[in-house]
Design a binder for these strands. Sequence first.
DNA 1: TCTTTGATTAGTGTTACAGTAATCAAATGA
DNA 2: TCATTTGATTACTGTAACACTAATCAAAGA
Lengths: 197, 197
Amino acid sequence: MSRGGIRINSGRKTPSSPYKEKTIPVRIPLSIKPDVLVYLEEYKKRISNNSEVSLDFPQALPNPPSLARPIYSGQVSAGQSRFPSPAQDYEQKFLDLNERYITDPPATFFFEVNGDSMIGAGIFHGDTVIVDRAAKYKSSSIVVADVDGEWMVKRFYKRGSVVKLLSENPEHPPITLSEGQELHVFGKVTYVIHKPE
Amino acid sequence: MSRGGIRINSGRKTPSSPYKEKTIPVRIPLSIKPDVLVYLEEYKKRISNNSEVSLDFPQALPNPPSLARPIYSGQVSAGQSRFPSPAQDYEQKFLDLNERYITDPPATFFFEVNGDSMIGAGIFHGDTVIVDRAAKYKSSSIVVADVDGEWMVKRFYKRGSVVKLLSENPEHPPITLSEGQELHVFGKVTYVIHKPE
DNA sequence: TCTTTGATTAGTGTTACAGTAATCAAATGA
DNA sequence: TCATTTGATTACTGTAACACTAATCAAAGA
């Protein structure tokens, strides 16, 4: 009758929680408990969808509810063609920068740029680049990459087995990967935020 | 010596919590615990600011606090100097693009740029510029201006009574204001958002 | 071989509790 | 009389503990 006995190495495996990490109790006001639960639900989904993604880097939040700001947008010419006055035909939009420029929040990172090797691509010293780890990059994409521990913004170039990292400044020669050098593309630069002087 | 004795009606008053309501423990994944704490912080502030409001009826909070996005930021080199791996020294920041790049929401406008006359300033065709009408501009500031109904992005130049609008592209000559021409500076370009290709 | 079943371990919501904070009024002292 | 000190009293909070559920395994049975 008894089917008992030792079962070594049995039991629930870890991590088997939907978060794939430990949890800790945090006191939440009753009125916003439902919001937090919804939030956790979203987070769970994201974690399970991205489960194949490496967890070397801490993952950030799912799409939290954002405060949209009403912004009047229009078009303006850098050349000299004629445009209607923004005062007349502005279009009231609720433009949320986060929404517009961050496609995948958990995969999005910000970097401040150091140096002027990418001036030709409109990336200046001190600029902030928005990097999306989930975005697909190809040859000629601008990426943030790590070559033997050195992190840089470059234009990624690949033809067959030849991989180079190109600058956009004649003073900076391309970097060709030599034998034994390791290249990790961290993510694709999707936007550059530049503060003009 | 003894100051003891019954103190009827003494003790901490309710509600004395910053939330003005009960709380309950909710299990939160460790990695997003900081986010939730920030969220609660915001909520607390909102509650305390509205404390003068009558509590006869439950009040709907005006702006629901948004869950700030944690973004891991680091620095990356466009040159070739060495930087530590973001995995090692990432700094968890709650970076909100709106907050960071929009100082004065009602005075902030967005324009899409047409043409390439400002390439030297890192402003390309198709870019979006953030324009702050409330920001002070001076000679050499980049502005959105209206000259006789024509709207443009230019570098504003002023020496005495001489006013010019300069391009940042050798192919585009400066615009000198002639007699009878009207110039209205709409606002100062505070940031340029560029999508590299 | 396949299925059943209890053993075993991980994860979860909630209670309990100890420690802290806030508030009051009696006792004290000026 | 009135301000200050002080301990009593009550509310609040973070977290440990615990009971319960979920997941997984391998031995026993079919």
